[in-house]
């Protein structure tokens, strides 16, 4: 028993040491966001703000419609995550559990879309989106990322670990493939789907170059474009930039926190059936 206890203590020590390293830059951003620029430049490396101020948080909302940017990002990231999961579940199921001619080759061909540096695709993608009349719109922000190879690959890996007996039982019950996907695979892959939804949300949320290219109007800007306002050639508004970063990061943490509850539900399910 005492052996188990000391293992637990070591576990906590290791985790805490790691946590400090992981957290440090974030803590620094947080502390910077509560400081005036003059104070930051005077002593950028003090870990505790001497005269903490909320001014940066107030001023980012005054300088730019940050609320609107947050809303735009929220809409775009949620829609992207939803569509990505839908398209990925369908394709991943086909790649993991259905047999059809050229399955492996098609999978590699899908995967190949990840292998080309995205920077070079931007201009042709821009031309496509503009020709489809989706410039400066939510559709233009969402649809190019509605299906991605990485999410398909991710789910395929999880679907492949689900026991075959469960699928066979469903087939005997007379279920079609769509029903098997919905009733067997998706409930069992809940931890994976929850993880994927966080990732998909986050990729979209942190995207900078694509919205920069296709968004023209102020009303359609996303949060990352808003942050760029504080980095200018003349100098960086460190306090405001970090306040903006904190505001931009909180929603993802909330999404993660909500999704994390799904992880735990997922365990009990798999635990029971396995």
């Amino acid at each position: 028993m005492s052996n188990r206890r000391s293992i637990l203590v070591i576990k906590y020590i290791v985790l805490s040491a790691g946590a400090i390293i992981m957290l440090f830059p974030f803590y620094w951003a947080l502390s910077t966001s509560f400081r005036e620029l003059r104070d930051i430049l005077f002593d950028p490396y003090s870990l505790v703000p001497r005269n903490p101020t909320f001014a940066n948080y107030l001023s980012i909302f005054n300088k730019a419609p940050f609320g609107r940017y947050l809303l735009n990002s929220l809409i775009v990231a949620s829609a992207t995550a939803f569509l990505q999961i839908t398209t990925a579940s369908l394709s991943a199921f086909a790649f993991a559990r259905m047999k059809f001619r050229g399955r492996e080759i098609i999978f590699i061909v899908f995967l190949a879309t990840m292998m080309i540096p995205q920077q070079i695709l931007m201009i042709p993608q821009y031309i496509v989106v503009m020709r489809l009349g989706m410039g400066d719109s939510y559709a233009g922000l969402v649809l190019p990322y509605a299906a991605t190879a990485i999410s398909i690959f991710f789910l395929r890996q999880f679907f492949r670990t689900i026991p075959k007996d469960l699928e066979d039982a469903a087939i005997i019950d007379g279920c079609g493939p769509l029903r098997i996907l919905l009733n067997v695979f998706i409930p069992l892959a809940k931890p994976a789907i929850a993880t994927l939804s966080v990732f998909a949300f986050m990729w979209s949320w942190n995207n900078y170059f694509w919205p920069l290219l296709i968004i023209d109007s102020t009303e359609m800007r996303t949060i990352q474009l808003g942050l760029a306002l504080f980095r200018t050639e003349g100098g960086i508004q460190w306090g405001e930039f970090m306040a903006g970063t904190v505001v931009a990061t909180l929603p993802i943490l909330i999404v993660y926190f909500i999704a994390q509850k799904q992880f735990i539900k997922g365990i009990t399910l798999t635990g029971m059936k396995g």
Binding site: I123, Y126, I127, M130, R131, G135, L212, L213, D216, S217, T218, L225, A228, L229, T232, E233
Partner: peptide, 24 residues
């Protein structure tokens, strides 16, 4: 006049060049 900030000088060039390609 609708003044819109489009990023740094370099980013603005990229944006404008791409927009001109499609007549925007």
């Amino acid at each position: 006049v609708r003044a819109i900030y489009q990023g740094t000088y370099d980013e603005t060039v990229t944006k404008m060049k791409s927009a001109l390609l499609v007549g925007a």
